[in-house]
Design a protein around this nucleic acid. Structure first.
Lengths: 141, 141
DNA sequence: GGACGAAATGTTATAGTATTGCGTATCCCT
DNA sequence: AGGGATACGCAATACTATAACATTTCGTCC
């Protein structure tokens, strides 16, 4: 775990929502006052994902810190289309069913992506104002 | 359903595997002997996805025709990293569990992405022949 | 300490994926 | 024919990711 990798992990935690690689590039560049190129950040993300510290949300092309890095978790995400927040939960039953289905097919699984898009409880209430995760100062919009 | 949209759907069926948007652009351009731009193809794909005729595989940035367009299906994919084939199956139990988890969160789901990467039976056979038909059922690598 | 190798990072360029904006054509309806 | 809605053509650009190669960092062995 190097300084750069720790920084990126910190930024992800601070962001509080799925964060794009180029947002991270910007954030690291700004915070460390030196230019950081895409490969640098992508390599750090790859490392963090291998360690199970970060997951990629495929449907957003974005990255989030994992909630339970210590365990082999399910990577099951609920993603709010409105406030852009994501929640990771564990439900071993899903993995069980997928393993069962895989067995029927003779399929040897190595990775799962389970993502549910929709609206979170807060946003589903009409009264709830939009929350913009502006933690990474230069966020778009 | 216009000529262009039908053409793209045909190409997807003919392809037999998840196909990238730019592959489709090339294919349409070649087959119809006229240049087709990205927006044209992306719009057709968007339409086909809305109709439930095509699904996007997020982890591949690719598109596949749906097996059961008539039903509200699960969009549950098993994707072989080796031969690039994908298999779509239905398992209503997965949707049930996801709905259950969503309910606990107060989350209103609008779209699901469930993708399992690994090796299909044929490819697993080739690179690592198994003995006497026994399969590693639930192995999470 | 100095040489060496492995791992990480820097740098430049480019590949791959997707959308915006605007103009034109087409179809349907009256 | 007029008018609106929908689809398509086209150019430019935004966004996401990787390739290829140079350089630095750091631990280890002598």
């Amino acid at each position: 775990m190097t300084a750069l990798r720790r920084r990126i992990l910190e930024l992800l935690w601070a962001s509080g929502r799925p964060t794009g690689a180029y947002e991270l590039i910007e954030a690291v560049t700004r915070r460390d006052s030196r230019p950081v190129g895409p490969p640098t950040v992508y390599r750090a993300l790859e490392f963090l994902m291998l360690q199970g510290l970060v997951s990629r949300i495929e449907s957003l092309n974005a990255y989030v810190p994992c909630v339970h890095p210590e365990r082999d978790h399910e990577c099951l995400f609920f993603i709010c289309s409105r406030c852009r927040a994501s929640v990771e939960i564990e439900d071993p039953r899903i993995g069980g069913l997928l393993a069962e289905d895989a067995a029927v097919l003779g399929f040897v699984a190595t990775r799962r992506t389970v993502e549910v898009e929709g609206m979170c409880a807060q946003c589903a209430e009409v009264s709830c104002p939009r929350r913009d995760g502006e933690v990474l100062a230069g966020s778009k919009e």
